[in-house]
Simulated assay, not measured.
Amino acid sequence: MTPRTWLITGISSGFGREMTEQLLAAGHRVIGTVRDLGKVADLNAQYPQTFSAELLDVTDTDAIGNLVELSFARFKTIDVVISNAGYGLFGAAEELSDSQIDQMIATNLVGSIQLIRAVIPHLRAQGGGRIIQLSTYGGQVAFPGNSLYHATKWGIEGFVEAVAQEVASFNIGMTLVEPGGARTEFRYGSAQVAKLLPIYDGTPAHAFLRMLDPANGLAPGDPARMAARIIESVEQNPAPLRMVLGSQALHSTISTLRKRLADFETQTALAASTDFPAGE
């Protein structure tokens, strides 16, 4: 693969860290954002010429704009932008606090939107590029106890699908990555849990507690293999709009979409009943 310059948010752990390590080892240049520079001190020491660590809180829109401006000014061309920063929040809807809701939307949804908006003018000016948005198969499939996370991912999926059509004529490709469960800190370290109410114990809303406990079995997804497939996707032209990673994730997505389509198809008469009669 031809060496490229990549801008990746949220590289202190998970897919962001795995992609960064693979890219640097292969000779690419990476601008990686973190909230704690200490988390990537080893990468700074190992790759002083090709790695640039930047402090960024993606809930700060002004900071996103400043980082993007400075990065393009410094490196001139950035070939790939990966919007990866985000986290999970588990709990029934009524168990979530107002501050948890605001923070998750600001991070997972608004932060991604603002990053994409900030880089588009630069990619357009340089003649094209690639934007990769980390989503989840939970951007297509919904589970109890995960409502707000789904809200942010379903939201960013709609945003990216629309924007991809807006920028395609400028040689800017966009891809939504929809991984299934993987053995990363997202599930086993950084996931947040709301203040749980006993009334939901034993109901589907608290089924996630079993999933978060490694003693009940680890997720099937290999972060290294998933990261490699994401990196390889930039060689595809045109850019794939969606990539589902993980056989269980793909099976669940296809099953859900088939059920949804079947339900829509039962509504043919209902939908037509609200149209003006022909000729009116």
Rank of each mutant, 00 (worst) to 15 (best):
P3V: 08
G16L: 05
R17V: 00
T20F: 06
E21P: 03
E21G: 08
A26I: 00
H28G: 03
V40L: 00
A41H: 11
P48V: 02
Q49T: 15
Q49Y: 09
S52Y: 13
S52A: 15
L55K: 12
L55R: 13
D57H: 01
A63E: 02
A73L: 13
F75M: 11
T77E: 12
I78C: 05
I78R: 01
S83L: 08
L89C: 04
F90M: 05
E95C: 05
S97R: 04
D98E: 14
I101K: 02
D102T: 13
T107E: 09
A118C: 10
V119D: 09
A125E: 13
Q126P: 10
G127N: 10
I131D: 02
I132M: 05
L134K: 00
T136I: 05
V141L: 00
A142V: 14
N146M: 14
S147F: 06
H150G: 02
I156P: 03
A162L: 06
V163T: 14
N171G: 10
G173F: 04
T175F: 06
T175S: 08
G189N: 01
Q192C: 08
Q192L: 11
A194C: 07
A194S: 12
K195Q: 15
K195C: 07
Y200H: 10
Y200T: 10
D201F: 00
A205E: 14
L209T: 12
M211L: 15
N216H: 13
G221D: 02
D222L: 09
A224L: 09
R225C: 03
I230Y: 08
I231G: 07
E232G: 14
E232D: 15
V234E: 08
V234S: 02
P240S: 10
M243P: 07
V244N: 10
V244A: 04
V244G: 08
L250E: 15
I254M: 14
L257H: 12
R258F: 06
R260Y: 07
L261M: 13
T266M: 02
T268V: 13
A278L: 12
